[in-house]
């Protein structure tokens, strides 16, 4: 399925990446080429095939309910572009 500029705009919005209007068409062509490449998969019969989400055959390991982390807000905020009074400071969120 070919991807058009409107789809690129929608997907870029979902992915929160600003793409200038003039990039939409070229991107649509690039992405369409990739999509038609991956559409080769349609040739494979996958009826009744269990999807494979992991190459690991063990089951999910579990951790005990012990507090052994946290208590260091400074470390958490160390790389923050902006912080104040122990909080991350981010652009105003309008609900």
């Amino acid at each position: 399925m070919a991807i058009d500029a409107a789809t690129v705009r929608r997907v870029a919005k979902l992915a929160r990446i600003a793409e200038p209007e003039e990039r939409l068409e070229p991107l649509a062509r690039e992405l369409s080429a990739i999509i038609s490449f991956i559409e080769q998969l349609d040739e494979v019969n996958t009826d009744g095939v269990e999807p494979m989400t992991s190459a690991v055959h063990v089951t999910l390991p579990m951790r005990e309910d012990v507090v052994a982390d946290g208590g260091d807000a400074e470390r958490v905020l160390l790389n923050a572009p902006k912080s104040d009074q122990g909080f991350f400071v981010v652009p105003k969120v309008v609900e």
Binding site: I38, L41, D42, V44, T46, V49, E50, P51, M52, T53, A55
Partner: peptide
């Protein structure tokens, strides 16, 4: 579909 093909490859 890709996950199923992945299974076939494995």
């Amino acid at each position: 579909k890709a996950l199923k093909v992945r299974r076939r490859i494995a």
